[in-house]
Every structure is written in C-alpha cells, then in structure tokens.
C-alpha cells in the first residue's frame, strides 16, 4: 500500500492503517515527513492525560480501570504504554498490556506499547508524535504511561494536559518523594495500593508537602487514595481529572499550556538542528580538533577554546 492509501484508510477510521502509520513514525521511515505534515493539521482535539510514578506502583492497572470508566463518557480512547529497552540487547519486553486485559475487546480503545529505544526521559522517543497520530485519528482521550524506573520523569508533563503522579506505600517517605522531583509536575497525586501498610502516612505526608509547595498556586493538586485492582478510588480520580480540565479551561490555561509545549518543542528541535549543522561543518570540526590539542597541551584554557570556537560559528552556513 502507498502512503496515500494508508492515510485514506486512516481517515476512514481503519485501525490497521493507524497501527501501520504509528510504526512508520516510530521507526523514522522516510514517509514520516509526509505523515507528520498530514497529522500536524489535525491535532488538538484530544485531551491528554499522563501517568507517571515508580515501577510497580500499579500505573497500568490504574489506566485500565480509568479507561474503562471513561468509556461511559467517551467513545474513543488511546493509550500509549512505554516500557524500557534493554541497554544490553536493545530488545524490550513490553508487559504493560497484561494488566489491561479487560480492555482488549473494548471497541474504541486502542493500546500501543512503545519501547524507549535508548531514550532516557521515561518515554519512548516518538511518544509525542504517536499521541498526535492518535489525536488526529479521532481519539478523544489519550493516556500516556511512563516507564517508571524511579528517576525523574518530568518530560511527561510537557506532553499532556493533566499529569497524574502515582505512588505506593513502598515508594518510601516524603523526602524520597521530594527528591524524585515528581511533586512539581503533578496535577493530581494518587496513593495506589492504599490497603497496604503505610498508605495513610504517605497520604498525609504528600498532602502537607503539596500544600507547602503549592501555597501560591490557584490549582491545589488533590491527593487520592486508590486500590486500582479493586476499582476503588477510580471514580474520584475521574472526578479530579474533570476538575483539573475545568480549571484549565476557566483560566484559559489549556491553550497556554499547549502553546508552551509547542514553544518547548520548537526550541528543542531548533537547538538540535543547529547542533547538527554545526557539527557537519568541516571548518568547525577542524578547529575543534585543533582546540582540543591546544587545551590538552595546556596552551589555552577550556574557556579560551570555547571562545575560539564561537568565533568560528558565524562562518557556518
């Protein structure tokens, strides 16, 4: 099938075409450009929810239950589940779907697992693009799950409208939570597996922490107790997501937030491109090697070397 045919099928709502198009983007095939042009004009309708939190916090189960609930209000839901690639074999074992079994036969739900393939921010490289594709396809809600290995996964908050941060009693004390840098990005906090010992302590610690860090903010992130396996607390989670959505709308923040994300992406890509252009320049490369030697032989300092290189930049076309 040609790319035109795929896009036509995509427009007709064909899941297989959607799936194939995601694959093209994920692998960076040459048709990507054409697809992204097509997709770019059609995004902006879907509401995006991000779910992050440490491994084993029950993110996938939470998503399964949440999606099931949301199905009574929305017909079309897309889910992106990120899992880490092995740094040794570059393979990946994508197991998030196991906990979403109950969604496999739900019409309107599309789940895609993505391996990080070396990306280090908790998301797969093309997560944003795949979310755009789902958006253009007509998904009303898109839920993105980070890998959750414990490091700071703040990137997610730039991709979505509402960020949910999930903890479990085992996640450790409040200090640990602060360190993880996750309190700053959450719009909603969840203490999952709340039947386990230590859940109430974590709950109050989180509440205090958030009250302190959000003193001057209009939006005070709620903390919710859930037991995803038993479907407990999911209703409240849904309610808070809607509250957050209303808050963004009423304060004209949704557009602002999304615009910020666009700016960020533009800056990132711009910077990356510039770097690429710079390093492709033979003159820069030659000068760089020279500077390295000079610094190594202690003829000049690093700072002086940088200055020399900057001077060269303006000759790059």
């Amino acid at each position: 099938m040609t790319i035109k045919e795929y896009l036509k099928k995509f427009e007709e709502g064909d899941e297989r075409a959607l799936s194939k198009i995601i694959t093209i983007i994920e692998n960076g095939y040459e048709e990507s450009k054409e697809i992204l042009e097509y997709i770019g004009k059609r995004t902006g309708k879907a509401y995006r929810i991000g779910i992050t939190g440490p491994q084993g916090s029950g993110k996938s189960t939470l998503i399964a239950k949440l999606a099931k609930r949301l199905l009574s209000k929305f017909k079309e839901i897309g889910i992106i589940a990120c899992d880490p690639s092995s740094p040794f074999s570059f393979g990946a074992l994508l197991g998030d779907r196991i906990r979403m079994n109950e969604l496999f036969l739900e019409k309107g739900i599309f789940i895609r697992s993505m391996a990080t393939r070396g990306s280090l921010n908790g998301l797969a490289y093309k997560t944003k693009e795949v979310a755009d594709i789902l958006d253009a396809f007509g998904k009303e809600i898109i839920i993105i799950e980070t890998i959750g290995v414990g490091q700071v996964e703040v990137e997610i908050s730039n991709l979505v409208d509402t960020t949910i941060v999930v903890f479990v009693p085992e996640s450790g004390d409040g200090i640990q939570v602060l360190k993880a840098g996750l309190t700053e990005i959450g719009d909603i906090f969840v203490v999952n597996k709340s039947d386990r010992i230590g859940a109430d302590i974590l709950f109050y610690e989180l509440k205090n922490l958030i009250e302190m860090s959000y003193q001057n903010s209009k939006w005070k992130p709620p903390v919710i107790l859930t037991q995803a396996v038993n479907n407990y607390g999911i209703e409240e989670l849904e309610k808070e997501i809607i509250n957050h959505y209303n808050y963004l709308i009423e304060n004209n923040l949704l557009e602002e937030k999304r615009k910020k994300a666009v700016i960020r992406e533009l800056v990132n890509n711009f910077e990356n491109e510039i770097l690429k252009i710079l390093w492709q320049s033979e003159r820069v490369k030659k000068l760089f090697e020279k500077v390295v030697e000079e610094v190594w032989e202690k003829k000049i300092t690093i700072e002086e070397g940088v200055k020399k290189l900057i001077k060269e930049v303006k000759y790059v076309k």
Partner: peptide, 10 residues
C-alpha cells in the same frame, strides 16, 4: 468473592 487477576512477573 470476585476473580483474581495476575500480573506477570519475569
């Protein structure tokens, strides 16, 4: 009683 659902552990 409900039904048990398992996670897969590797």
């Amino acid at each position: 009683f409900g039904e048990y659902k398992e996670e897969a552990f590797f």
